[in-house]
Every structure is written in C-alpha cells, then in structure tokens.
C-alpha cells in the first residue's frame, strides 16, 4: 500500500498538537518534527515524541499525555481529533493521514468533554448516562438457572452490532445537540458534594446517540424487554431523545458502524407509544 504513496520518500513530517497542562490552564499549540518510518500510527508518533522529550524548536518538553490500551480499536480509550476528524489514534495510520493532508498532522482533544491534560479528556458522563437508562439485563441471580431464552439468528444479528459500542464518544463529538458540560470543584467542596453536582449537571444535558442505542439493545433482549418501560421513560426526561435534531452526524462517524439513526428511530417510536400510554394510564 504505502509503496504507492509519495510519503514513503519523506524523512520527517510535521505534527501539531493542541496541548493544555491542566484543566485550569490555557491551551497552546506545539509543533513536532517526527522521523518517518513505514507502518506508523498516531500511537507510535506520540511514543516517539515522548521518548525524544523536545519540540521542533528544541525546547525541552514534558511528553504529551494521551490515553490508550488495546491498540486495536476495541477499547475506545485513544479517541481524539486527528486532522479535524474524531477517531481512534491507534487505527489512524500515518501513511493514510499524509495522503489526506501532506503538510502536517494535527492532533487535538475531543471538544465535547472536559480536558484533563493534553489529549486526555474526562468521559465519565458517558458511563453516567448508561447508569441512568439502566443499560443492563436485570437477572434475578448469578446462580445457575440454565441457559437464557432461545434466540433466532436474526435477533442475534440485530443485537450484535449494537453491543459493539465501545463508549468512545465519536458520535457525541459529532452531534450538534451534545454540548460540553464541565463542572469545576468549588473551594473546600467534598468529593461527594462535587460528584452530586456533576451528576445533576449531566442529567440536564443530552444523553446522546450511543446511550439511546443501548436502550434499544436492552429493550430488545428477551429478558431486558421486561423493563423496557423504565428505560424508555429514562430517555424521555430532560436531555432525552426529544433533543435529537436528526442531523445524522453521529452515524457517519461511528468507527463501529453502529446503525445509530435506526436505533434513534426505533427508540423514538417507542417513546411516542409510551407517551400515549402514560396519558391513558393517568
């Protein structure tokens, strides 16, 4: 592959990183010249920058902070904005990026989450929302009760893609309705009080396409179905599915190609029915 591109001949390439030393400090750009090698990805670039310890102007710098774990695009940790597109650093191959943009590679943290440092962001809100919609199968016990209900191949084939969501946040970064929520700790505030305030703030914001899709996953599970109402109610509260403007940005960027808009449509129908039901229940 790489043999076809002109990039193999280059010796170095430029990488510009948007850095931030701590949540309180200002962001700043830093430029690095990185030696080209075949088969590089953004992870190996950041590793090189870390072991070199200086920027292109020769200034001694602390390594750029970033998250990663699996290096095969299944854990979701390394998500960041690469050349303007939110994606996983580990599966962003340098040869491809240089084909897209030969002059430089630009890295910045996701903008919809508070920056912890450099490219590391705080995505707790994603997990908070999964809790809010009860994204689990509420079994009675973990003791041996035999197998679960039989399922058709078709059911499995519908559920499986939804269950691949790795909570990376690409869909949220792309969504015009999902806005950043950053709560800063007050002087002398206890952990508990701070967390409580954070949760309340999260509950006001949009829950996002990924969470809606998880609701569909569990509401279609033969056992999960039994509490479908509770989950549907949860996405009808403040910040719920009604906020979605159907811009479809989310589905276009999901690295796992999860059919998010199909999920949103299904959940939307369920919410409408549930709305009517609630009127009659009164």
């Amino acid at each position: 592959m790489s043999n076809h591109s002109s990039t193999t001949k280059r010796k170095t390439f430029a990488v510009r990183v948007l850095r931030k030393d701590s949540p309180e400090s200002e962001s700043y750009w830093e430029r690095h010249d990185v030696e080209y090698e075949p088969d590089m990805n953004i992870i190996s670039v950041l590793q090189k920058i870390a072991s070199k310890g200086e920027s292109s102007s020769g200034k001694k710098i602390a390594p750029v902070a970033w998250d990663c774990n699996c290096l095969e695009e299944v854990c979701g940790a390394c998500t960041m904005v690469v050349n303007g597109k939110t994606r996983q650093a580990c599966s962003s191959l340098i040869d491809r990026l240089l084909e897209e943009s030969p002059s430089e590679i630009v890295l910045s943290p996701m903008s919809k989450f508070p920056v912890v440092r450099d490219l590391v962001v705080d995505r707790k809100r994603i997990f908070h929302n999964l809790k809010k919609v009860k994204a689990w199968v509420p079994v009675d016990t973990y003791s041996d009760m035999g197998p679960g209900p039989k399922q058709s191949r078709q059911q499995q084939e519908e559920a499986y893609p939804l269950s691949e969501c790795m909570s990376c946040g690409c869909c949220l970064e792309a969504c015009p309705q999902y806005l950043k929520i950053e709560v800063t700790r007050k002087n002398g505030e206890t952990d508990e009080a701070f967390e409580q305030r954070q949760k309340e703030a999260y509950d006001k914001g949009f829950i996002g396409a990924n969470t809606i899709s998880q609701v569909v996953l569990f509401n279609n599970n033969p056992t999960g179905q039994m509490n479908a109402k509770e989950r549907t109610d949860a996405i009808m509260q403040e910040g719920g599915i009604q906020i979605c403007g159907n811009a479809q940005n989310c589905v276009a960027v999901c690295p796992k190609e999860i059919p998010l808009t199909t999920s949103i449509a299904k959940a939307g129908r369920a919410a409408t029915i549930r709305g009517l039901q609630r009127i009659f229940d009164k």
Binding site: V137, M145, G146, N221
Partner: peptide
C-alpha cells in the same frame, strides 16, 4: 456460559 447467555451476551 449459561450465565453469560442470560446476561445478554450476543452469542
């Protein structure tokens, strides 16, 4: 495996 099936693993 039965338990994981009940927990919703998409086997």
């Amino acid at each position: 495996i039965d338990l994981m099936d009940r927990l919703g693993v998409t086997f």
